[in-house]
Design a protein around this nucleic acid. Structure first.
Lengths: 277, 277
DNA sequence: TATAATAATGACTAAAGAGTCAAAAGTCAA
DNA sequence: TTGACTTTTGACTCTTTAGTCATTATTATA
């Protein structure tokens, strides 16, 4: 492990139960077994460490959700797996993020904060996607309320588990939650949160840029170097995106190519991009 | 307003968006327009201020919930009012408590923390009480799950409202939540959280002491000085509680006297005490 | 008005922590 | 083994802040 990562991980450990301001660099370097000077070889300042920690946690979260999305599983089972993963992430990352978010706001500049917030919304985006896979157009109107309630219930149980130090079987809990959602969906209540209300905040309406897709392809490419079908698909997408007026037909076709090869995450990015074209 | 209260209120304002450690006494006294010395006339230390702030917020919360409980309203409407109040309190007090709770733990000693945590559980206790009033024994088994889900959904919406700076009609939202709860109750799902799990943490099982009831009576007494029925009831409760073996019959009878006079809060304390006798 | 009592001030002390840098320790090719 | 190089160290500086206390301002009382 690099010294940088060591510092990040030890800091997360320490900051789990202390505030940023009340934790000195000395505390951190003591925990790492390194000197104060060594810290400043990896990080320019305390501020830089904080940003790095947030990026580290968010990256961890996103990559795990990506893996989940790329699994080939029946939609409801995927929702259950999503809950299980979310509970694990809540346990590991959420206390840190929620406790220190406010403090971070005072330390680092607005653009960094905005970036972090947008990335944090990824979990909600995924909730919406999974719900759509299961219930289709039936929940078109009520999906925002559902997403809020689901996230709330998840947090409710997560908090209960953490505070009571209860060991609850996450899979059982997830099955239970899926049942509750079923009940709520079939009750078909008049929704309260409309699309307009939900998307008023641009952070809830992630805008995928050309570069995001190209980056993602570059990341995946190597893995599929021997599969000419996939490399061709990648090639076609890249070509089409370079054009001034990319054709929806090509991109959508390629996106279903991706889905059949379990590159769901990339497919989602592409679909989002098409929607906003 | 006393200087002490001025300092507490200004501190809450400032600490809404800063951490405790990064806020100096000087910052606080500047905001109050007083000198540093004046601060130390009201508080022995920064630590004492923090404890005072938490006590202030919790007292505010409890007294408002008490008022609500003492209202004479149809149970479902009371649940709606409970939601409206909770949303207001979330908006006002919750961000402070959740952000600074962890930091407080490092500063003040365990006993103080424990005390604060127990008082914070009051909202959950009230949820359970109100649910019992509406649905009776039907939810005996599932009430713990319901309470967790309800709290979660409330928090979900509260967070949405705060983050999006949306102005949502709290009463409409509360009606919506009550409908959702109806749906969940009537679906009659197998519960996940059992009484044993819930009460494992003694904080979820508030033990009312003789003194709590006597204190509460002393507080109410003055208000009812002209009503001989109520003063007699008070007198009888106090007499009975002083005995080595207070008789349940008397106490339960007096508790229903209290309910008929809208002294619901005191009645609840008394019933809880009887239950644990 | 004069005096005593109380309240408020802010310069001061001592402690702690962020960030620096000259010197020490370690590495490795010749 | 040497010595040119990199990495690591921790004592040091400078800043900030909790808490004190001699002094000043205000109020109450005679």
């Amino acid at each position: 492990m690099s010294k940088r990562d060591l510092i990040i991980e030890k800091s997360i450990e320490i900051l789990f139960e202390r505030s940023i301001a009340s934790t000195s660099i000395q505390d951190i370097t003591n925990a790492c077994g390194i000197s104060k000077g060594a810290f400043y070889l990896s990080f320019k300042s305390k501020e830089e460490l904080l940003i790095a920690i947030f990026e580290y946690l968010i990256q961890d979260m996103i990559s795990k959700y990506q893996e989940l999305i790329n699994l080939q599983t029946e939609p409801k089972e995927k929702l259950r797996q999503y809950f299980v993963l979310s509970f694990k992430l809540f346990e590991k990352n959420y206390p840190f993020i929620s406790t220190h978010a406010r403090e971070l706001i005072n330390i680092v500049d607005k653009e960094v904060i905005n970036n972090i917030q947008t990335q944090c919304k990824i979990a909600d985006q995924i909730t919406l996607l999974l719900l759509k896979d299961i219930y289709g157009s039936k929940i078109e109107e009520s999906k925002y309320d559902l997403s809020i309630c689901i996230r709330g219930m998840m947090k409710g149980y997560a908090e209960f588990i953490v505070l009571q130090k209860q060991s609850v079987d996450y899979y059982e809990l997830s099955k239970f939650l899926v049942n509750r959602i079923d009940v709520l969906v079939h009750a078909d209540l008049t929704p309260l949160i409309t699309k307009e209300m939900y998307e008023q905040d641009p952070k809830n309406h992630v805008l995928i840029k050309k570069e995001d897709i190209l980056d993602e392809i570059t990341k995946c490419k190597e893995q599929y170097i021997d599969d000419s079908f996939i490399t061709d698909t990648f090639e076609l997408i890249m070509e089409e995106l370079q054009k001034e007026h990319p054709r929806k037909a090509i991109l959508l076709g390629m996106s279903s190519n991706l889905v059949t090869n379990n590159l769901n995450w990339l497919a989602i990015l592409l679909k989002q991009y098409i929607n906003n074209m």
